[in-house]
């Protein structure tokens, strides 16, 4: 179908994009502005976009004010990375099994996974807490990594499964005829071909893990040194006042790693989400 848009249609399309972007990016912009303002200028009335004495002071003082800030950021990264690695170790073979093999209850399992996702972590906090107590992993990294992985695996399986289903079955059959074991096929044939799909699943897992760690960290961990950024950031809540500018600065610095990863890998995401069959 050949269809050329008129100029005003283009105008409308871009306007819609613009509205959506403003809606999504406004909080980030406000966070940036707040982080640049001196504390006493933050609540000035009337609201002014640019206030006097803007600068990067908060980005320097925040490290002194909350000395463990770097540790929180590293914790966040470490927890999210571990969750991603752990989850992928389960997602890849599971997605392959769900994509390829016929077994009893396959569809029921898939449905159940979605259901778990809908229930979410918050509802299961108390049973999970009891589990942690029993396993004696409360107040360890494990307490934040294991549930993090558990709740990202279902989405990952769904994401990767649809990708794997597009890999021609004959590729695996050819390898099977040539004597390759299932694991060999997975390692040498499926994983390399599915790499774009795996990257998408990995990024989705990482971002989810990064975002959801607050809940698990708050409930399953009370050791300050192990806290990830979303919890650590509370230290900017002073007794009398909240140091908003430093808090926003710390938040933005905390988002940075995810942003970098996303920008670097985004061509994989687009390719992975839109790729047709892996024909060769």
């Amino acid at each position: 179908m050949i269809h050329r848009f008129r100029w005003y249609e283009y105008g409308l399309i871009y306007l819609a994009h613009l509205l959506l972007l403003i809606f999504i990016l406004a909080p980030f912009l406000e966070a940036l502005l707040v982080s640049l303002r001196p504390l006493n200028a933050i609540f000035s009335i009337p609201y002014r976009f640019v206030t006097p004495d803007m600068g990067f002071d908060a980005y320097v003082t925040m490290w002194k004010n909350v000395p463990l800030l770097w540790r929180y950021i590293l914790n966040s990264l470490f927890i999210a990375t571990s969750v991603t690695v752990l989850a992928l170790a389960a997602i890849i073979p599971a997605a392959w099994a769900f994509a390829r093999f016929e077994f009893r209850g396959r569809d029921a399992f898939l449905g159940a996974f979605l259901a778990v996702n809908m229930v979410g972590g918050a509802v299961l906090i108390i049973p999970l807490f009891k589990l942690m107590v029993t396993l004696r992993i409360l107040n360890t990294y494990m307490a934040m990594i294991v549930p993090g992985a558990a709740f990202t695996i279902p989405t990952g399986i769904w994401l990767l499964r649809s990708y794997l289903m597009r890999i021609p079955r004959e590729l695996e059959e050819a390898a099977w005829v040539d004597g390759a074991s299932r694991l060999y096929i997975l390692r040498r044939v499926i994983v390399p071909i599915a790499m774009p799909g795996i990257v998408v699943a990995a990024i989705a897992t990482f971002i989810t893990a990064y975002a959801q760690q607050f809940l698990f960290a708050l409930t399953f961990n009370s050791v300050n040194e192990l806290s990830p950024l979303p919890v650590g950031i509370y230290q900017f809540f002073g007794r009398q006042r909240v140091i908003w500018n430093e808090l926003m600065a710390a938040s933005l610095v905390g988002i940075l790693p995810v942003l970098v990863i996303y920008v670097v890998l985004q061509r994989y995401i687009v390719a992975g989400l839109t790729a047709g069959a892996v024909k060769e």
Partner: peptide, 17 residues
């Protein structure tokens, strides 16, 4: 298959890209 002493060529070639 591998114990049968056969080799198979598929319609779609089934080459590893």
């Amino acid at each position: 298959p591998v114990k049968r002493g056969i080799a198979m060529v598929f319609q779609s070639y089934a080459l590893y890209p």
